[in-house]
Simulated assay, not measured.
Amino acid sequence: MADNKSRKGKQDRNQVSGSENYEIQYFKTKMGVTSQAVVGAIKATGSNDRKTLEEYLKKRHNK
């Protein structure tokens, strides 16, 4: 699904688009992981929900 930059609602902020490089870059910096880890988390969880991805990455990288 393409990112609609004219739409600035809450729903858009709660998602990390795997097809938008700037969103992956921001999220990887925030979480302290690689871009591959972010894309892998999206694939592994089957979700692009920010909270779901944060939880997944925290569990995977705190072992």
Rank of each mutant, 00 (worst) to 15 (best):
A44I: 06
S19P: 06
K63H: 08
G9Y: 11
R50L: 05
E23T: 14
M31V: 11
Y22W: 07
D3Y: 00
E23D: 15
S6K: 15
I42L: 06
A2I: 09
R60K: 15
A44C: 04
N62W: 05
A44H: 03
S19E: 05
Y56Q: 08
S19D: 03
V16R: 01
V33M: 10
N48R: 10
R60P: 14
L57H: 13
V39D: 05
I24E: 01
G9V: 11
V16I: 11
G46Q: 04
A37D: 03
L53C: 05
K63I: 06
V38F: 06
D12E: 12
E20Q: 11
R13M: 09
S17W: 00
T45K: 02
K43C: 00
E55D: 07
G40P: 09
S47F: 01
D12I: 11
A44P: 08
Y22D: 07
V38G: 03
S47I: 01
M31R: 13
V16A: 01
R60I: 07
D12R: 11
T34E: 13
N14M: 07
K63Q: 07
I24C: 03
Q36F: 14
A37V: 03
Q36I: 13
R50K: 09
G9A: 13
A2G: 15
K58Q: 05
V39N: 12
Q15T: 15
Q15Y: 09
K51G: 14
N21A: 15
D49Y: 02
S47G: 01
F27N: 02
T45P: 03
A41R: 13
A37F: 03
M1L: 08
T29P: 15
M1K: 09
V16N: 02
R13H: 09
S35R: 08
N14H: 11
Q15A: 14
N4F: 03
V16Y: 00
A44M: 02
A2N: 13
R7I: 13
D3W: 00
D3R: 08
V38P: 08
T34V: 10
Y56W: 08
G40L: 10
N4C: 14
R7H: 12
H61N: 13
D49V: 01
L53T: 03
Q11L: 06
R13S: 08
E23G: 15
V38A: 02
M1D: 05
V16H: 02
R13K: 12
M31D: 06
N62F: 08
E54K: 09
K30C: 07
E55C: 06
Q15K: 14
Q15N: 15
T29C: 15
G40Y: 14
Q11R: 08
R13Q: 10
S35H: 12
K28D: 05
T52M: 03
R50M: 04
F27W: 01
